[in-house]
Design a protein around this nucleic acid. Structure first.
Length: 676
DNA sequence: ACGGGTGGAACG
DNA sequence: TCGTTCCAC
C-alpha cells in the first residue's frame, strides 16, 4: 500500500523565487548578490548573496555591511500617493509580481506536460504526478525495442540503455540518492529515470521560456519528492530510489519533513527526537499514547517516508486576502485609510480573477488585531458590477464589518479576505446551444452521485463545494492550456507585440519560434486564460469587451460551438453575424470513448443554459487540443458538475420547469474540429 | 526585528 | 452547520 513505488512524483521548487523575479524584471545578472527586502527586513536572498553570509530576516544595513555590493530590491507596494517609499506606515506590501510569475510557470508546465496532474503547492513550488506520462513512455519504449528485436518477444530483456532511450542510469545529471547509478533493471528505478528525464525537460522549459531556475525531487510520493528537491539546490535535481529511503530518513532533520516544523516538531524534539529516524524508533504505543491512534499512525508513516497523499489539482485560490500590520492606532480615520488600501488591492485582484475565471466571492471576512487579540468578523461579499469590483463597494462592505467589532481599538492589523467563490454565469443564447446538447430529466444517480437536493438561490448562496466543482475548473484550465498549445500558427494573429512590451528581453537571442511560444503561452496565463475563454466571457455582450478582445473570434471560426452565439451582433457597426451552426452536431462522443445519451427532443428549458454553454465550450476547447484526451471521465465529470449546478441555479432561474431541480443528464455532442 | 498570504483543521 | 480561531508553511 505505501510501498506503492509505481507512482512517479515530482516536486519542483523555484530557487529563491522572489529574487529571480526581481532580477529578471530589473535585468540584473544572475551572479550579482541580490536580496528582496520588505521594509528594513530581508525576505529572500539569492545564492551569490547567501555565499556572502547573508540570511533571511537580516536587516538591510546588516546585510550591506557584510556585502557592500548587495543589491536590495524592495517588494512592490501599494497605497499612499503611489509614493515609492519604504515607509511602512503609508503603504502596504503586495506580492502581485510573484503571483503573476507563478501563473506563467504553471502555464509553461501545463503546456510542456499536458498529461501530468499539477498541484500548485505554494507560490513557488508544485507537485506533479507524471505516472501516466512515464507509463506511456515505458510502453512505447518496450514496443520500439520489440520491433527492433522481434526475437526478444514477451518477457525478453529490453535494452533500456540503448541509445536515445529515456531510461538513463545516470538520469541526465540528476543526483541519485543511495549511491551509484540507477538500476535500470528495476522497474521502479526505470520509472524514476523517466521521471527525471521529464523533470529535466520541464526545468529546461522554465529556464528557456521564462529565465527561472528551479530544483526538483523525483520520487514515488510527495513527501519524498519534496525532501529531495530541497537536498540539492540551486538548479539541480535529486532522485530517491526506493532502496535509498531508509537511509535518507534515518538522519533527516525533523523540520525538513512537511508538517513537522511547528508544534508537532517541537513536541517530538521534547521527546528527544531531532531526526525522522529517531521518531521511527519510538514504540508505537508510546506514540499513540501521546498523540492518539490516528495521528500516531500518520506520524509513523511519515517518518518512514511513506505517503499516499495524492497530487491534487489546485488551480484556483479558494480565498484572497489583503492584510496590513501597523503600529497600534485608535484613530478611526487611520483605519479607514487602511481599509481603503486593502479594498483597493482586493478589488483589483478580484476583478482580474473574475474576468479570468468568471467567478466572484460570496463571503467577506475582516480580521483584525484589536484589544482582545486576533479576531475576525465575516459577512456577505458585495456582488461585482458588470466589469468587476470598485474600491468603494468593497471598502464599504469592509467598513460595515468593522463597525461590528467593538473591541477593535486599539488596532494593530487589518485584513480583508474574500472567500467562498461561486461561478458567474457566462451568458446566453439558448437557441444555438440547444443544437449541440440534448438533455433529459432522467435521474442518473450513478452519474451524478448522491445528494443533489436542489438549493434555492435567489442570490448565489448554497455552497456545495465538492470534487466535482474542482474538476470542472480543472477541465476549463486544461482546455485552455491545450488550446494554447496549438492555437496559434506562425503568421496567425497573436498578442505578440503586447507580450514583447511587458516581458523583459531574454538574455539570449530569441527566435520567432520562441516569441510565438511566449505569445500563445501568454494567452493562457496572466489571469486572462486563453483568448478562447475570454471570448466566451465576452459573449455576455458587453460592448467594450467584445470590442477589445483579440481578433481570433469564434464567430470567424466555423468549428467553434459558440459560433453565432451572442457576439458582435450587439456591437454597433457589426451586422448580425448569426450563422447556422454547422458541424459540431452529430459526431458523437463515443468516438472518443465518451458515453452518449441520445435522448431526442427534450426541453432545453429544463436545463441551465449557462452550464450547457460552459460545458460545451470546455469540451470543444478540449477536443481542439486533442480529441484523444477527452475520455469518459471528462464527460462524466463535466456532465455531473453541470447537472449539479443546474440543480442549484435551476430553482432561481425563470425558465425552469418543475423537476428541473432533480439531477439531469447532459450529453455532449461534438465533433473534432479540423484546424486548417 | 514575524509581514503578508494561503489552506485547512479544530472548536464551540 | 456556521462562524471563528488556531495552526502550519
Amino acid at each position: 500500500m505505501n510501498s506503492n513505488h509505481a507512482r512517479t512524483i515530482l516536486h519542483i521548487d523555484l530557487d529563491c523565487f522572489y529574487c529571480q523575479v526581481e532580477q529578471k524584471r530589473l535585468g540584473i545578472s544572475p551572479n550579482v548578490p541580490v536580496a528582496v527586502q520588505q521594509w528594513e527586513g530581508l525576505i529572500a536572498i539569492n545564492y551569490p548573496a547567501r555565499a556572502a553570509g547573508i540570511t533571511r530576516h537580516m536587516r538591510v544595513h546588516e546585510a550591506k555591511a557584510l556585502c557592500p555590493e548587495l543589491q536590495c530590491v524592495h517588494v512592490e507596494t501599494i497605497g499612499g500617493d503611489e509614493l515609492d517609499t519604504k515607509d511602512r506606515t503609508k503603504q502596504k506590501a503586495c506580492l502581485e509580481r510573484y503571483r503573476k510569475a507563478c501563473i506563467q510557470i504553471l502555464a509553461v508546465l501545463h503546456k510542456a506536460a499536458p498529461q501530468a496532474i499539477i498541484e500548485k503547492a505554494s507560490i513557488d513550488e508544485v507537485y506533479m504526478d507524471v505516472t501516466t506520462m512515464v507509463e506511456k513512455e515505458l510502453r512505447e519504449r518496450a514496443q520500439a525495442d520489440s520491433c527492433k528485436n522481434p526475437e526478444a518477444g514477451e518477457g525478453g530483456a529490453h535494452d533500456w540503455e540503448a541509445g536515445g532511450s529515456p531510461v538513463d542510469a545516470f538520469a541526465w545529471g540528476s543526483i541519485v540518492l543511495g549511491g551509484g547509478p540507477l538500476d535500470v533493471g528495476s522497474e521502479f528505478e526505470r520509472r524514476l529515470s523517466i521521471g527525471a528525464n521529464i523533470a529535466c525537460r520541464l526545468r529546461g522549459a522554465i529556464r528557456e521560456q521564462l529565465g527561472f531556475t528551479c530544483s526538483a525531487g523525483i520520487a514515488a510520493n510527495k513527501l519524498l519528492a519534496k525532501v529531495a528537491s530541497a537536498m540539492n539546490k540551486p538548479n539541480q535535481q535529486t532522485i530517491v530510489p526506493p532502496r535509498a529511503v531508509d537511509a535518507m530518513m534515518a538522519d533527516l532533520p525533523l523540520k525538513k519533513l512537511r508538517n513537522f516544523g511547528g508544534k508537532l516538531g517541537a513536541e517530538l524534539s521534547a521527546m528527544g527526537c531531532t531526526t525522522a529516524g529517531q521518531v521511527a524508533a519510538i514504540p508505537h504505543g508510546q506514540l499513540s499514547a501521546r498523540f492518539g491512534e490516528e495521528r500516531a499512525a500518520s506520524i509513523a508513516r511519515a517518518v518512514r517516508g511513506y505517503s499516499d497523499e495524492p497530487v491534487q489539482v489546485k488551480e484556483l485560490a479558494k480565498s484572497m486576502l489583503a492584510a496590513k500590520s501597523f503600529n497600534a492606532t485608535s484613530s478611526p480615520a487611520e483605519l479607514d485609510r487602511w481599509m481603503g488600501i486593502l479594498a483597493e488591492e482586493l478589488a483589483h485582484r478580484l476583478t482580474e480573477d473574475g474576468t479570468a475565471h468568471s467567478r466572484a466571492p460570496r463571503g467577506l471576512t475582516l480580521s483584525y488585531r484589536g484589544s482582545n487579540g486576533d479576531r475576525s468578523k465575516c459577512g456577505p461579499a458585495p456582488r461585482p458590477a458588470k466589469d468587476g469590483y470598485t474600491v468603494e463597494v468593497l471598502k464599504e462592505a469592509g467598513s460595515m464589518l468593522l463597525r461590528k467589532c467593538p473591541d477593535i481599538y486599539p488596532c494593530a492589523r487589518l485584513a480583508l479576505q474574500a472567500n467562498d467563490f461561486y461561478d458567474l454565469p457566462l451568458g446566453d443564447d439558448q437557441g444555438a446551444i440547444s443544437r449541440f446538447f440534448t438533455s433529459g430529466a432522467t435521474g442518473t444517480r450513478d452519474m451524478v452521485g448522491e445528494g443533489g437536493a436542489p438549493a434555492t438561490l435567489a442570490a448565489p448562496k448554497a455552497k456545495k463545494t465538492g470534487p466535482q466543482q474542482a474538476s470542472i475548473a480543472q477541465m476549463f484550465k486544461r482546455a485552455a492550456a491545450a488550446s494554447s498549445c496549438q492555437a496559434e500558427e506562425p503568421g496567425a494573429p497573436s498578442n505578440q507585440a503586447e507580450n514583447a512590451a511587458t516581458t523583459p528581453a531574454q538574455p539570449s537571442a530569441q527566435d520567432d519560434a520562441l516569441q510565438i511560444a511566449k505569445g500563445s503561452e501568454q494567452a493562457s496565463q496572466d489571469g486572462k486564460t486563453s483568448q478562447l475563454v475570454q471570448q466566451a466571457l465576452s459573449s455576455q455582450g458587453r460592448q467594450e469587451d467584445s470590442a477589445s478582445y483579440p481578433v481570433h473570434d469564434h464567430i470567424n471560426d466555423p468549428a467553434h460551438p459558440l459560433q453565432g452565439v451572442a457576439t458582435r451582433a450587439d456591437v454597433p457597426g457589426h451586422a448580425s453575424m448569426e450563422q447556422p451552426p454547422n458541424a459540431c452536431t452529430a459526431v458523437d462522443a463515443s468516438e472518443h470513448g465518451a458515453s452518449v445519451d441520445t435522448q431526442p427532443d427534450c426541453d432545453l428549458a429544463s436545463v441551465d443554459i449557462e452550464e450547457q454553454k460552459r460545458i460545451m465550450h470546455e469540451i470543444w476547447m478540449k477536443s481542439r487540443g486533442s480529441a484523444s484526451r477527452i475520455g469518459e471521465d471528462d464527460v462524466r465529470n463535466a456532465t455531473s458538475a453541470a447537472a449539479d449546478r443546474s440543480a442549484k441555479r435551476g430553482a432561481a432561474g425563470s425558465a425552469v420547469k418543475e423537476g428541473a431541480g432533480k439531477q439531469m443528464r447532459i450529453s455532449a455532442m461534438f465533433k473534432t474540429p479540423r484546424r486548417t
